[in-house]
């Protein structure tokens, strides 16, 4: 597998991360417009990396862990770019860019060998299932980002310690609203991911639900986010919502990174 484009993308994300840090921590206004553009460049390279692979093999490269990681960060960056151009939320990039860098770095650091697509994964379900599932996860990653900023900003307000850092943050109201929006987008996508996965499982494994570890973990995450969404609709907001969002994402990403190593699953994209 050719990883040149992926390396270029990682480089851009790193650059963007540095540039965002300059903007947030050192108050360099000049880079505020530049940083999202650098992210966009990284995204273009990243798209090229995924595109080249798709045209070479005819299927999206998401079947191995490192490929899934790269695809995940690609979707997340796409989500960030949409949010940035809609809400001008530059500071979110300070979390997303370094995250995207680490994920793409890991994607080629874990090896670059190409493996043939396992026959059981040769299906139209693959792109559908993977895309909706990762879109949902990307929305949760963005929700995690704004929640972190919310918690930081809220803490400073409560402790009455103003730092220049806060000048870069949007209001708590905006952050809370964005958190809710990401959740509202993320949850149905995650639901679709699970539904499409189950249907695919019904076709290939013969049963919609077979208590596979991946199914169980997604089920738990789905219940958690569902409860969170319900809570939000009935008045849960602010710090508690941000804390729960952060917690939920940490569990999901933690499972994504290490879960399959502990609980072997028939699910593709595992780390082996």
């Amino acid at each position: 597998m050719d990883v040149t484009f992926l390396k270029i993308a990682a480089l851009f994300y790193l650059l963007a991360g540095v540039s965002f840090a300059l903007y947030v921590f050192f108050q360099r206004d000049v880079v505020s417009k530049l940083s999202p553009l650098i992210v966009a460049c990284g995204f273009a390279a990243h798209t090229a990396a995924l595109g080249v692979h798709f045209f070479q093999t005819g299927y999206p490269n998401v079947t191995q862990f490192r490929e899934a990681l790269s695809f995940y960060s690609w979707v997340m960056v796409a989500g960030y770019l949409v949010v940035h151009f809609k809400y001008r939320l530059s500071v979110l990039g300070a979390i997303i860019a370094p995250l995207a860098f680490l994920m793409t770095l890991a994607a080629f650091a874990f090896g670059t060998g190409s493996e043939a697509l396992p026959p059981e994964l040769k299906s139209y379900w693959l792109p559908v299932h993977v895309t909706v599932a990762f879109l949902g996860n990307a929305a949760f990653a963005l929700a995690f980002g704004v929640s972190l900023i919310y918690l930081l900003s809220e803490r400073q307000l409560k402790h009455k310690k103003m730092t220049l850092l806060m000048k870069r943050f949007p209001s708590l109201e905006t952050l809370d609203r964005l958190n809710y929006i990401f959740l509202v987008w993320g949850f149905p996508l995650m639901t679709l991911g699970i539904v499409s996965g189950s249907m695919w499982a019904a076709i290939h494994w013969g049963s919609y639900w077979s208590w596979d570890p991946r199914q169980i973990s997604s089920g738990i995450a789905w219940l958690f986010y569902g409860a969170l969404l319900h809570g939000r609709a009935t008045g849960l907001r602010g710090r508690k919502a941000a804390l729960l969002t952060t917690f939920g994402f940490c569990v999901v990403i933690g499972y994504f990174l290490w879960g399959e190593a502990i609980f072997p699953s028939r699910h593709g994209g595992r780390f082996d």
Binding site: S153, L157, M166, F169, P170, S171, L172, E173, T174, R177
Partner: peptide, 9 residues
Amino acid sequence: DLARRIFDR
């Protein structure tokens, strides 16, 4: 200024 950090508008 502080109110702006809590409220958007």
